[in-house]
């Protein structure tokens, strides 16, 4: 009981203390670096009016975060809409796999930001560009994990489908998708994580609106405490996104059902 209290409360508190100490030391050594107290006070101010809107370039933190999330979900939804069917196709057909694989292997390691200038040139629109960059970021883990899930369907299940003479459509919905769904959600969870990483960088480059833009803007304003606040908020939002995806994934995972 006592040990458990130490493990769950005392150790994290101790680590927090160490973190604050290191931070304070850095703040003392580097002139102008915001101290923890200053940052805390600034955080309260920033959070006190998160929805203010003084026109382009000057909006509350919640609006900034919200616009980043909108772009992330836009690109993410597109990636799901394209990635799952393509993944199913690649998983089910050797021919499709041979056709798609070289392109996936070559495009996958490209930094999504490399696409940004091209997208900006094509769309001539910041929102569309950001959404496209998130799309191209998110699609690879979804395709790859969906295909992996399809390939993990055991021959026994396929034989059951053959004996029952299921149509191709029934096979996909009654056998293949239920097996593949946990894999697909793993891919989506990975994608969403990376998308949230990439949006910050993308918005620093595109400007205008969004949490990435906000951080860069505060750097230009020499408002360094806001950069730290931005980092913390990005972390918190990322953590919340991942937790929600985890809950949804578990809900659709048959392996986690029916166990008490």
């Amino acid at each position: 009981m006592l040990l458990k209290t130490i493990n769950t409360i005392a150790l994290p508190t101790l680590l927090f203390g160490v973190l604050i100490a290191v931070w304070s030391t850095v703040a003392i050594k580097i002139p102008g670096f915001p101290t923890p107290i200053e940052t805390w006070n600034e955080l309260l101010i920033v959070l006190s009016d998160p929805m203010y809107d003084n026109g382009a370039g000057d909006q509350g933190i919640a609006l900034q975060l919200f616009s980043s999330l909108k772009r992330v979900f836009g690109g993410f939804a597109l990636a799901i809409a394209v990635g799952i069917p393509v993944g199913l196709l690649i998983g089910m057909s050797k021919i499709a796999q041979t056709a798609f694989n070289p392109y996936i292997q070559i495009l996958k390691p490209v930094s999504p930001l490399a696409w940004l200038p091209l997208a900006l040139f094509v769309f001539k629109d910041v929102d569309m560009t950001a959404i496209f960059v998130i799309f191209i970021t998110s699609i690879w883990p979804i395709i790859i994990n969906t295909a992996l899930g399809v390939r993990s369907v055991s021959d026994d299940f396929i034989n059951v489908a053959r004996v029952l003479q299921l149509t191709a459509f029934e096979r996909v919905f009654q056998i293949i998708l239920p097996v593949a769904v946990p894999f697909i959600f793993t891919g989506m969870r990975l994608s969403l994580g990376i998308a949230w990483l990439v949006i910050v960088a993308a918005e620093m480059l595109t400007g205008g609106l969004g949490i990435g833009f906000w951080i860069w803007d505060e750097y230009n304003n020499l408002n360094y405490s806001h950069i730290i606040i931005g980092i913390i908020l990005i972390g918190v939002v990322g953590y919340i996104l991942d937790t929600i995806m985890g809950f949804i994934a578990d809900h659709f995972d048959y392996r986690k059902r029916g166990r008490v």
Binding site: S154, D156, F157, N159, V160, R162, V163, L164, Q165, Q174, I175, P178, Y254, R255, R257, G258
Partner: peptide
Amino acid sequence: NAPGPERAVVFQNHSLLPWLT
């Protein structure tokens, strides 16, 4: 020349679909 439901198979490892009751 093809599988069909008039010849049902009981597989050695039961092959029940684990996501269904």
